[in-house]
């Protein structure tokens, strides 16, 4: 049971430069990114299978979770 997590832009640095890691299912996105040492508050957008979700979304088997930070605002 696993899901994939993608970090985009500046968040890649938190995955040691990797684009993608495999994560466990059953946890919320917030718990998942905390476990990866990514501060949840710098993640601006969470997409699960290309659909925006909150950080309280519970990761399910086969999900592709994409994380994006905001660097510049308007």
């Amino acid at each position: 049971m696993s899901a994939r997590l993608h970090a985009l832009g500046i968040l890649k640095a938190y995955l040691g430069g990797k684009n993608e890691v495999v994560v466990e299912t059953g946890n919320t996105v917030r718990e998942t990114i905390r476990a990866l040492d990514i501060p949840p508050e710098i993640v601006a957008l969470v997409l699960v299978n290309d659909t925006p979700q909150s950080k309280e979304y519970r990761v399910q088997d086969g999900d592709v979770v994409t994380l994006m930070a905001v660097v510049g605002g308007g």
Partner: peptide
């Protein structure tokens, strides 16, 4: 850029939820 599609979808409004959260 992998950031292109989400940005096109929401533009600057992407920030609203995040600003609310932080």
């Amino acid at each position: 850029s992998e950031l292109l599609k989400p940005w096109q979808n929401l533009g600057t409004t992407m920030v609203v939820s995040w600003c609310d959260e932080v």
